[in-house]
Nucleic acid binder design. Structure first.
Ligand code: FES
Ligand code: FES
Lengths: 152, 152
DNA sequence: CGTTAATGATACCATTTGAGTATCATTTGT
DNA sequence: ACAAATGATACTCAAATGGTATCATTAACG
């Protein structure tokens, strides 16, 4: 039961990194060096972000990626939607068929309610909110590029 | 991103079913008939519940399973702990190693907070709370044995 | 007793998802 | 022309999920 997968996490880091550089565009190579994410994997992620419209890309020498909208408008939920099949916590399928009983199921009601809460909170997380001091832990310098987009 | 898996769901149904029967013990065969869960799968689940101490079993003719404690004390979180490796929504491991950065990571802080909320709510769900009218949707009679423990 | 109805213990299999790699084609600045 | 970049696509590998199958053991009942 993981809320976010590696894809989503890495995408978050990459986007944060781009947001912090005040450049026209940031290349995959630079991000690989900075974030220590395996190159082909990061490239795939960036391509996805690009095709999904979160990044604009420029090809050729000197090219790279840039945010296609402001950091406040790039939400964690956007990434989850893109990289994780669904954001739904509750499915109740039986042999590929949707449950005929969705409307009067107490367990489903409970889980749906929890889901709404989680979503509400996730929607409050953007790359801006993590990356620019809204939150604590903005202290560490330099070395750690290992995990999550927020700190490194 | 599923909150509960099939195992957990089926276990929930089985436990609710047992709770509703006012009998010394309920056999797997009876539950297969009532809940429409594949027999070998349900048996495995029951065995697990038994070995984990949620059910007491009696072998031999006339045997079966009984709750080993009161329905109020069997929580959804117990089942999640048993059937899903972890209840943690957030792990941040890198090449099998725990993240060296867990203490000053803004994203982790956010997700941890969400996790606490989710857990608090999940802990409020027991087989008693779903099965005996604390919650809505206690209406349907008879036919539907297809999904979730709560309704059928 | 011996049969039969039950669980216990294990081992196995299939599908899906997550995580990551590899390759070739295309674009563009110098 | 060449080098530095992304685009498109296909592939591999491991773990988790969702099951099946088989044989052993126990105990009530006739
Ligand atoms: S916990 Fe590893 S950097 Fe966030
Ligand atoms: S949604 Fe299917 S029974 Fe709960």
């Amino acid at each position: 039961m993981k809320l976010i997968t590696r894809n989503t996490d890495y995408a978050m880091r990459a986007l944060c990194h781009i947001a912090k550089q005040r450049k026209e565009s940031v290349s995959a190579a630079e991000m690989v060096a900075a974030l220590k994410i395996p190159r082909p994997f990061l490239r795939k992620i960036l391509q996805t972000l690009s095709s999904e419209g979160l990044l604009r890309s420029t090809k050729g020498q000197g090219g790279g990626f840039a945010l296609s909208r402001s950091p406040q408008k790039i939400l964690l939920t956007d990434l989850i939607r893109i990289f994780q099949n669904t954001i739904q916590l509750n499915e109740c399928v039986f042999k590929k068929k949707l449950c005929p009983n969705r409307n009067n199921c107490a367990l489903k009601k409970e889980i749906d309610a929890i889901e709404q809460d989680v979503l509400k909170r996730l929607r409050g997380i953007s790359i801006a909110s993590l990356g620019n001091g809204h939150h604590p832990a903005r202290s560490n310098q330099g070395k750690c590029h290992v995990h999550h987009s927020s700190v490194c």
